[in-house]
């Protein structure tokens, strides 16, 4: 009886630890990307940072969406958001204003000037 309850408690704690580790890694990833965008934007024209996306987060598939106000990470139906100061974000062709970043790919975040001489952060996949 006592062994059963100890196993049940231990099982619960392990699940909590695993979910927490997963959430913490997801949060770290979104903060890392948000920080890279801030650094790239504040670094001036031509400043670029490369980001290597992990293949998974603790064995779970994830997706990252970046728009002008922040970075959203989605993992197993849960979302975490990292705000950043309002700025123009786009893909390499500058025709999309929300960029999706996929696992196991490398991306470059670069500060460029657009046709109106405004600073813009573009995110594109390294080929």
């Amino acid at each position: 009886m006592i062994t059963g309850s100890v196993i049940s408690i231990a099982e619960g704690r392990l699940t909590t630890a695993q979910e927490t580790a997963e959430s913490a890694e997801a949060r770290l990833l979104s903060e890392k990307i948000a920080n890279a965008i801030e650094v790239s934007y504040s670094g001036g024209e031509g400043h670029e940072i490369r980001i290597e996306m992990p293949s998974d987060i603790r064995g779970s598939h994830y997706k990252v969406k970046v728009n002008q106000s922040g970075v959203l990470v989605i993992i197993r139906g849960r979302c975490g958001y990292s705000f950043s100061y309002l700025k123009s974000i786009s893909n390499y062709d500058q025709d999309q204003y929300e960029v999706v970043m996929f696992p196991k790919r490398n991306y470059t975040i670069r500060n460029v000037k657009d046709d109106h001489n405004h600073h813009r952060v573009i995110i594109f996949e390294d080929l």
Partner: peptide, 28 residues
């Protein structure tokens, strides 16, 4: 023992809730 197990489970759960709150990772 049953009450002890329940209190332990509630503590693990409350901790999990606090961690979700702290990390701000929520269901969609």
């Amino acid at each position: 023992n049953e009450l002890n197990q329940a209190m332990s489970a509630s503590r693990a759960g409350a901790l999990q809730g606090a961690l979700h709150d702290g990390l701000a990772i929520y269901p969609d």
